[in-house]
Design a protein around this nucleic acid. Structure first.
Length: 607
DNA sequence: TTAGGGTTAG
């Protein structure tokens, strides 16, 4: 190597930060990032000061600064040379001046996710080269930081930014706050959400119906309707009026809760406020009627809606198709499916899903497959729900192998298998008396990190019950509660049925009382199980007491209730009463099966 | 900018 060259190398190694920075900037301007990547010399001389110098070089366009910055962030071999906080802030203030707010936000999200960089806003402001008194800049900085923290789920830090903003008497937009409220809602942090909207009001953020509805809807979805109502009243005092969407949130909650008085109260409020129903309101009201068996009323509402000139949409049609499927009126469901296309509405995957489920439940798997094909030819692909629906259809027919075939396809397609998938297969196996396999699927589900829900627990509890292992069933029931998963009527009924069949009536009644104490009403299943238990063990009068109580509580008896009661009376030789119930059963529209006749014949002998 | 529709257990 010549002396000249040696000298050059030497000079280069002792280059000052300024020289290196200038060189980098020059390279970036002249030949872009690519050239820099192939300059190990420049990169090896990179340090935090050089980075800052480059980022603040006025010859370098802000866009190039961003490219350089991202290159440092993303290049794995440069992990030790990541930009420090000051570098971030240098770039942020440059981007502010260039009005590049999207980029500004991207840079700030690096700060938000990095624990080493995260710090109070006041500290960040100190690092900027803008005049710290530049209120507009600090305001924008706070706005973006608040959004970034909200997006990253760092709600505490976001709140600190909000407080800083308030303390410095800076302006904060409702839109910004809504980003935060929405993130809280998505993360089910309604407690924080409620406190925050109250702070918004207190600190003079112009709260509108949008923010209010977001919080109200979140509360309603968690079943905390009373708190939502309270909030609405509170905000009414601030001059914020609910609109049709706010009311729909409430109506939805009351409908789900089967609280018709609640629904009526909201409709009254709407009338007082002169808020007109829209298609969503009708969808909810119609669903409410249909699910309580008042199909005629639901249809009347549909007429009324059209008379008022409100157009049905795909949501409403899907909902209607779904309720006609539940009523096993497939003819009507298909008629609606045709009708929606005639009206120029495009069916989507949920519409097909409703119809496919209907035909699956009717046992028409070929028709279901045809619908899937039709859907695909119209450019809609199968999703998780469609797969689950089809698997359930096959399982109900005892065609477990077909269901498992779909499971394999589902996995191959990269679709996530969920609690529905596993439960469907497990209960299918359970029905086919493959209990060990059924349990194995549920255990596998948990091993794969899916959190079991109340349905999964209930299925497993039912399997143990049917195996006669009440100890394990009860243990699971307790484990479920410990895990914070609330049992529902089905869970209780499964256990009540198991204890009743074993003649452990004391335990069975205790469970019934616990259930009612939790605010869960007894159902036909509850009564029928208890009644059946009493009958098996000869306590026919106790059974009759339950049978009559059902009527008093407005619960309609089903075929199984009658069958159990008739068989109980027959065994006890109370033939007349048994035959009287038989007539009543026919009158109620049930078709007695062999068991009923065998019992009745026996009753004559027993008498 | 805020609301509504399809899938699992007795």
């Amino acid at each position: 190597m010549s002396t000249q060259k040696l000298l050059q190398v030497f000079k280069k190694t002792v280059s000052t930060d300024e020289e290196v920075a200038k060189e980098i900037a020059k390279t970036l301007i002249k030949s872009g990032l690519k050239a820099l990547e192939t300059s190990p010399f420049l990169l090896s001389n990179l340090n935090s000061r050089v980075t800052r110098l480059v980022l603040s070089d006025p010859h370098l366009h802000p866009r190039s600064c961003v490219n350089f910055f991202n290159f440092l962030q993303r290049n794995p071999s440069l992990s030790s040379r990541r930009p420090d906080l000051q570098a971030h802030m240098t770039l942020v203030s440059r981007l502010f001046k260039a009005q590049e707010f999207v980029e500004m936000r991207n840079v700030l999200s690096y700060v938000a996710v990095d624990e080493n960089l995260r710090c109070p806003v006041s500290d960040m402001v100190c690092f900027t080269e803008t005049d710290p008194k530049n209120a507009k800049f600090v305001e924008k900085l706070c706005d973006l930081l608040f959004r970034v923290y909200a997006d990253n789920g760092n709600f505490e830090e976001a709140l600190r930014v909000f407080d800083y903003t308030v303390k410095k008497s800076m302006k904060i937009e409702e839109r910004t706050c809504m980003v935060y409220l929405l993130a809280l809602k998505r993360n089910d942090k309604m407690e924080m959400s409620l406190r925050f909207i109250q702070r918004m009001v207190k600190y003079g953020v112009g709260v509108t119906v949008y923010s209010m509805t977001m919080v109200i809807d979140g509360l309603c979805k968690r079943g905390e309707v009373e708190r939502a109502v309270k909030l609405m009243r509170e905000l009414a005092g601030e001059g914020i009026k609910p609109n049709v969407i706010t009311y729909n949130s409430f109506i939805n909650a009351y409908v789900k809760r089967k609280d018709s008085e609640g629904v009526r109260e909201m409709l009254r409020l709407m009338e007082n406020d002169n808020v007109a129903y829209n298609v969503t309101t009708y969808t909810l009201l119609m669903e409410s009627c249909a699910s309580s068996g008042k199909i005629g009323e639901a249809e009347k509402l549909f007429e009324e809606m059209r008379e008022r000139g409100i157009e049905a949409d795909v949501h409403l049609y899907t909902s209607m198709i779904s309720w006609y499927c539940r009523l096993e009126n497939m003819r009507k469901a298909f008629a609606l499916f045709d009708e929606l296309s005639e009206r120029g509405i495009v069916a989507n995957v949920r519409t097909y899903g409703a119809l496919i489920d209907g035909v699956c439940k009717a046992g028409q798997m070929e028709a279901a497959e045809n619908l899937v094909n039709l859907m695909q030819t119209r450019g809609i692909d199968l999703n998780q729900v469609i797969f689950n629906t089809l698997m359930n259809g096959y399982c109900r027919k005892g065609m477990i192998d077909e269901a498992l075939r779909l499971y394999v396809i589902m996995e191959k397609k990269g679709l996530e298998t969920d609690v529905y998938t596993y439960n469907t297969i497990a209960s299918g196996l359970h029905k086919s008396n493959q209990n060990e396999e059924a349990k194995r699927w549920l255990f596998t589900m948990v091993e794969r990190g899916k959190t079991p829900n109340v349905v999964n627990f209930t299925t497993l509890i039912d399997i143990y019950c049917k195996e006669g292992n009440l100890g394990e069933a009860k243990r699971l029931f307790e484990e479920m509660e410990e895990r914070g998963e609330k049992p529902n009527a089905v869970t209780y009924n499964v256990l009540i049925d198991a204890f009743s069949k074993k003649g452990k009536m004391k335990e069975a009644y205790k469970l019934r009382d616990d259930m009612e104490a939790m605010g869960i009403l007894s159902e036909v299943y509850t009564y029928t199980s208890l009644l059946h238990g009493e009958c098996i063990f000869g306590k026919v009068d106790e059974a009759l007491k339950l049978f009559n109580e059902m009527h008093q509580r407005g619960l309609s008896r089903n075929k199984i209730t009658y069958t159990a009661m008739i068989s109980g009376l027959s065994k006890d030789g109370r033939s007349d009463e048994a035959f009287k119930l038989y007539d009543e059963m026919i009158e109620a529209g049930f078709t007695p099966d062999d068991r009923v006749y065998t019992s009745l014949v026996g009753s004559v002998h027993n008498a």
